[in-house]
Design a binder for these strands. Structure first.
Lengths: 214, 214, 214, 214
DNA sequence: GATGAATGAGTGTTCATTCAT
DNA sequence: TATGAATGAACACTCATTCAT
């Protein structure tokens, strides 16, 4: 659904799934180490355990690998998220919980997230929209959560504020990877999570309280 | 001060400054369009208005260009910042003003800023620290501002919260360029600025007010 | 045995052997004409009958070609030598025969020998020792021969004289290539061989003394 | 006389002489270290103490420098030779003395001699004959010496043997530099000289025969 | 006479991709 | 389906030489 089709010369769908899984796993590790441009298709083939010829049976171009990698990372993050939080509820506590879970997932997959964050720009003008769409879907998860919490009466935010807050939550999660060279020195993941939750929510939280009392 | 020396075969310092300026300008435009790796040194030379041989009179390697680009962008941002805000004061109003000015500068230099944050990772392990140092210097500007405002009694934040808030301010500025594909659709720069100021500060602001009133 | 491994991206050992043979042959001709430095890898590839990309499937660097050339020449000389002379005997006659055979081989391979003699110095500090070792192995062939002849009682030479004489034999062979611009004008190979054998073995001074006394 | 003219844009002959002397000195050192091809004209200019522009006031091309270097080395060797031996005499003792003096000169100028014999091949087809001519002049010195000694009745050699012996003497001098990686381990210069004089002049075969008969 | 900035053809090398087996 | 040898356009970088000042 909304996923871009990457054609393969091989017919067996099961095999495609399997081989591409091996490819992506190998590629993430290599991209992590050397970046997309400095990684060669030969290296990816070798690390995947098959020949360069076989690699090209399952993709059309090097860029396809990058797309598959990005796609796979988003799916991974989303899957882990769905495993741990119910998206049907709506309460301040639930928002806090969701943020914490999200930050945890980002931390677990920090290499992957960083790779995607840094290399997605190398996707062609054709493939990029598919990845950006995934990013929007991720944002939507938090938007929905916030909407429900607003509907519940626990938060007082207009539409645009919901959007921006959801955006900020996502960004603060990514920050933990792309500024880790600095943040890791100052905070543990737990401290970082707690402090960001405070900074993210106390504003809107107090305001709504204030709003209520006034 | 803390800047990495990039050696040149040319002796005339004035000329080096001039030619490197031309180079950086051309390179930013090309990097913006195609990224660092997809841009060739010949393209940079041509766009700079001189031959490939001349290009290499002023740098040692392609990476030097990227370093000069990053360095120049930081200097540009800092210079514009210093032009518009006094860094000696300390008040809520001043913090708001500084954020707005910073977001404005980022918006004016959005191409440059985008290029830097996307390509800096391609710097070698030798050059990267110099750029990260610049980033910390930028963060420190906001840390100082917040410290002074805390000292003034207008904010109530501990040391670690100051650090994180400064990080957040910087990152949200960058995000205006990084996620412009999404943000631009929703907000004007002014709206984005105003809303982020609210989200960033109302949390801590109300808390301190609450603290005061209690 | 003692040969330096030159890695190849190609797995088929037979093919490596074959392609490198073609490469070396082409390279010798080109080096002969223009020297190592003035010969381009593209020229070598073309003369070898394959593309530049293919060339680099079989070597890592241009210097590898030079090493293979040197190695191949030594092997060629040694092989031809072993084909024609038994190295187990030891007599004046056998020494003379061996010298004549060696000079013949040098003459047959004069282009190769000259190339090696002139270009080996361009080998890196890493590869040079392997080539010098081959040179010592060549010298050792004549040392052994002389030793056996001494043991047979047909010559009276101490260890150091054996070494130097073997060295001189080798040098006189190489001379035939690197001074051919002059020697060829004066002597045929047969004349040169006969005269050098005389000078090497008979001595000029004693002969004249003998001549006088007889 | 017989020297190739190397044109210069500068008129002042004294200055030409001086500058070229500086150039040659610098070039020999650089060629010694890195070889002719790996040495750049910029390096030569710098090591000579003037600019690249000035360098080209005194030569037309890089190859001119190589020619001047070769020429200068020959002149140096010849000069030192003439300083120490009279070329008018003719006797066995004198030949021995001349060989020893020549070997000494070669040893003193070993770097220069090595450079010349390794790099002369890079001279163009136009310049090479001039250098070969110098080499023949050197050979002629020993030919003459041998001729006079034959005429004196102290040696019994025909014309062709004289020529070849002269060649051999020259080559064995050169080999002291060329094969120093091997020879230096076995012999001091004095030992090498003494032994080569013996082998060149006394012969090994007759000696052993003599030994046997005595 | 001296300088050194400018030039650009040329070099070694890489690597995504193809295709015969 | 799987292989891996072959390809060649493209790349970063060099350096002998020129010429305006």
């Amino acid at each position: 659904m909304g996923r871009k089709e990457v054609p393969s010369l091989v017919k067996d769908e099961k095999l495609i799934e399997k081989r591409r899984g091996e490819m992506v796993k190998a590629a993430v590790n290599l991209f992590k180490e050397n970046g997309f441009h400095r990684t060669t298709t030969r290296e990816i083939a070798k690390a995947s355990g098959f020949s360069i010829g076989t690699l090209y049976e399952y993709i059309r171009s090097k860029e396809d690998i990058l797309y598959l990698v990005c796609d796979s990372i988003y799916e991974g993050v989303k899957e882990k998220l769905h495993e741990q939080i119910s998206l049907a509820e709506g309460s301040i506590e639930h928002v806090k919980k969701a943020i914490a879970v999200y930050f945890n997932v980002v931390d677990e997959m920090q290499d992957e997230v960083l790779v995607m964050y840094q290399e997605a720009k190398s996707l062609s003008r054709e493939a990029l929209p598919y990845v950006l769409k995934k990013e929007l879907e991720m944002t939507a998860i938090f938007e929905d959560l916030l909407h429900r919490t607003v509907a519940q009466g626990e938060l007082e935010l207009n539409e645009e504020e919901v959007k921006l807050l959801a955006h900020n939550i996502l960004v603060h999660g990514q920050m933990w990877t792309f500024r880790r060279w600095s943040l890791r020195k100052e905070y543990t993941l737990e401290e970082y999570t707690q402090m960001q939750i405070n900074l993210l929510l106390y504003g809107v939280l107090n305001r709504s309280l204030t709003g209520k009392t006034s």
